[in-house]
Structure formats: C-alpha cells, structure tokens
C-alpha cells in the first residue's frame, strides 16, 4: 500500500492505494471518475487518455503511485461551470461520436493536439489522433469535429 496525493481536475486527492493500481483505475475506481475508459490492455486504444501535468497520456500506461504529487486532468474537468469547451462542442456539432466510449479519450487527445498545433491540416489531425481508436465513426466526423473546435478556438482567441 502507498499513500498518494494526486491533484485531479484541480482538487488534491489523497488516498491509500495498492502500488499496482493503474492511474486509470485510481481515477475510475478510487475516485469514481468513470468518464475515463479502458478499452484495451496494450495501451493502444487511447480511451483512457488524460492529461498529466498538462500532457496527454494514456492513464493505463502508468501506475497511480507514479503520478503522486502530479496533476491530472480528466474529461470530467473539461467543461467549466457547465459550459462545454470548444472540442466538446465540436464533437457535438459535427457528430464526432456514436457509442461515446472512445469519446472522452478522443477529446482529451484532440484538445492536446490543437493546443500544440492550433491550425492542423486534416492529415495532421488524423496522424495526431493515431493513439486513439474509434470503431463507430470511421473518423470522418472526428476530423471535422477537431477542425471545428480548432476554428472556434482560434476565433475565440482573436
């Protein structure tokens, strides 16, 4: 067992956990933040994507103890005061989700993508999301969603 303090969506959370608890299971099972999903066991699908100190990472690919003292952002923290962010709006507007299971990870990865590359080409969006799998959409509308969000973000910053 180990004691960890991880700041999740801005709130420090201190818990006693087994060392073998993955960050994703800490979020889901210890904190009850079940928006972050598990879709594979080889760190391929990206459904568990969160931010760790601001960087998009797969929360199934590290143990919670390794995030001790660090800051984690999850899908539950993306909308502020009930207002969806541009990426969530983009996904809604462009129908970038169907079953919605990959969506939280996809949104976390896509937010990071446009932060690094505010005006991506469609191809750059596709390559940038290679760490996230979706079996429903064929990605066509996900690309549109990211572009819509990128445009809205750029307009908002202007």
């Amino acid at each position: 067992m180990a004691s960890v303090t991880i700041t999740v969506n801005g709130t420090p959370q201190t818990r006693e956990i087994e060392t073998r608890v993955l960050l994703v299971h800490f979020l889901r099972d210890t904190l009850g933040l079940t928006g972050t999903h598990v879709g594979c066991d080889t760190s391929q699908c990206g459904a568990c994507t969160v931010t760790l100190d601001g960087m998009a990472v797969k929360s199934c690919s590290l143990f919670a103890v390794q995030a001790d003292g660090r800051s984690v952002g999850t899908i539950e923290g993306v909308a502020k005061e009930g207002k969806l962010n541009a990426m969530q709006e983009g996904f809604w507007q462009e129908h970038g989700l169907q079953c919605g299971f990959c969506t939280p990870g996809m949104i976390m990865a896509a937010c990071a993508l446009i932060e690094r590359n505010p005006k991506p080409t469609d191809h750059e969006v596709r390559v940038g999301l290679e760490g996230n799998m979706c079996r429903c959409t064929g990605y066509t509308n996900i690309v549109k969603a990211v572009q819509t969000a990128a445009a809205a973000t750029a307009a908002g910053k202007r």
């Binding site: 760190s43 990206g46 994507t49 760790l52 960087m55 998009a56 990472v57 797969k58 690919s61 590290l62 990865a109 990071a112 993508l113 940038g128 290679e130 760490g131 996230n132």
Partner: peptide, 9 residues
C-alpha cells in the same frame, strides 16, 4: 515513435 500520448511519457 508510438503515438502522441506514448511520446509524452
């Protein structure tokens, strides 16, 4: 290498 998330860690 890998994907964006893998490269970040």
């Amino acid at each position: 290498i890998g994907d964006a998330q893998v490269r970040n860690l």
